[in-house]
Design a protein around this nucleic acid. Structure first.
Ligand code: DGT
Ligand code: MG
Ligand code: MG
Length: 364
DNA sequence: GCCGTTTTCGGCCCGACTGTTTTCAGTCG
């Protein structure tokens, strides 16, 4: 039983508990445990053998016992029972954008929907809008979500996402009043794959920026658009999120939108311990808000050195920063050469000479 | 369900947008 398999089970337990209407904090506990098991650098089985499961953040007495049961018997009784109570197809509904645990439960219990295909049928037949809290518009959004799911599910390589981001940012930078425009989210953290594109823009007046964004040629569908945030979907089914805030809030805004979610939550907890409440708008204090125009100011106000985006996954970087023990990362400038590349002699796109010249031009 | 140099119980990050709502739940970032 490997780490991914264990994490997947915990995450599925979280999903089922959510559909059952369990306490949000209990659900979060399962999710957090799942994330931390997935992020482990050692096999969870090895930690189990060494009786070290409790050293994993988010694994307490109960989840330790469940993982122990899984390692011993290959199953978790509690998980088997949950799966008997909520069919897999109902859990699968959560993959549809705009369908969360409440709606999944509603569609299942009221209409007998037990999968995405049957949800589509119900929506096309106009049955969703008969439900409490639902209407014609919500029903259409669910249908659009199912279509998007068919076009693209899963993550996109950084190298594919980055050029698209640069193109869109270039267009937004042309809008009068735009001061700064940059990639954020997993793109800025340089994750190998990204779930969507997150773009951040600084401007006093957000409306012209939002208007331009909604009309970019890549936009197939506008998902939502307000005064600080717009989300669109491309023809490929790829989502792009844009946030626009005033330049004087750039520091807190960039910190927020760079994430990760887990890093943000941890940093916000630290802020609370320091007498602040941290949001994308400011460091809020009783005496009044502190606006930060740079990320350095945000981290510094919390007593931390600025943490490189690549490390912001809540995998110990905040503790390391507190102890002034952040690792010295390898930067592009540290590269002296490249001993492994392909040329036209095999499946590369350039000749050996071209590669050598490009390397020299790059200072390698 | 987890966790603790203020806590072993009672908190758990903070906010935007939409639709259906008559005051806010749901979903998402
Ligand atoms: N404080 C806070 N920030 C969040 C939360 N969810 C998302 N964010 C911030 C941090 C994220 O990096 C950023 C963009 O959200 P995304 O959902 O696009 O996540 P991210 O880009 O990190 O990963 P992705 O590759 O898109 O799956 O928004 C949240 O629940 N709380
Ligand atoms: Mg993202
Ligand atoms: Mg996003």
């Amino acid at each position: 039983m490997n780490n991914t398999e264990v994490a997947d089970i915990l995450a599925r337990m979280a999903d089922i508990l959510a559909i059952q209407g369990e306490s949000l904090h209990r659900i979060m506990a399962y999710r957090k445990a799942a994330e931390n098991v997935a992020a482990l650098s050692r096999p969870v089985e090895e930690m189990w053998q060494a009786d070290e499961l409790r050293a994993i953040p988010g694994i307490g007495k109960t989840l330790e016992a469940k993982i122990d049961e899984l390692m011993r018997s290959g199953r978790i009784g509690a998980y088997e029972r949950l799966r008997e109570q909520v069919p897999d197809g109902v859990v699968a509904l959560l993959q549809v954008p705009d369908v969360g645990p409440k709606r999944a439960a509603l569609f299942w219990k009221e209409l007998g929907v037990e999968g995405v295909a049957s949800l589509e049928k119900a929506a096309r037949a106009g049955r969703l809008q008969t439900l409490p809290g639902m209407g014609a518009k919500s029903e259409q959004k669910v249908l659009a979500g199912i279509e998007a799911l068919k076009r693209l599910s899963g993550r996109t390589l950084l190298g594919v996402a980055l050029p698209l981001a640069e193109t869109m940012l270039g267009a937004l930078l042309e809008v009068p009043g735009v001061v700064l425009a940059t990639p954020a989210g997993s793109l800025r953290r340089k994750r190998e794959t990204v779930g969507d594109l997150d773009l951040l823009v600084a401007a006093e007046d957000p409306e012209p920026v939002m208007a331009r964004f909604r009309e970019l040629p890549q936009v197939e569908e506008v998902l939502l658009s307000g005064s600080t945030k717009t989300a669109i979907r491309t023809a490929e089914g790829f989502q792009v999120d844009l946030r626009v805030l005033e330049p004087q809030r750039w520091g807190t805004a960039l910190q927020y939108f760079t994430g990760s979610q887990a890093h943000n939550i941890h940093l916000r907890q630290l802020a609370l311990e320091r007498g602040f409440s941290l949001s994308e708008y400011a460091l809020h204090r009783e005496e009044g808000d502190v606006l930060c125009s740079t990320e350095e100011e945000v981290y510094s106000a919390l007593g931390l050195p600025t943490i490189p985006p690549e490390l912001r996954e809540d995998r110990g970087e905040i503790e390391a920063a507190l102890a002034s023990r952040l690792p010295d990362l390898v930067e592009v400038d540290d590269l002296k050469g490249d001993f492994q590349f392909h040329t036209t002699r095999s499946d590369g796109h350039n000749s050996l000479l071209e590669m050598a010249q490009a390397a020299r031009a790059a200072g390698l």
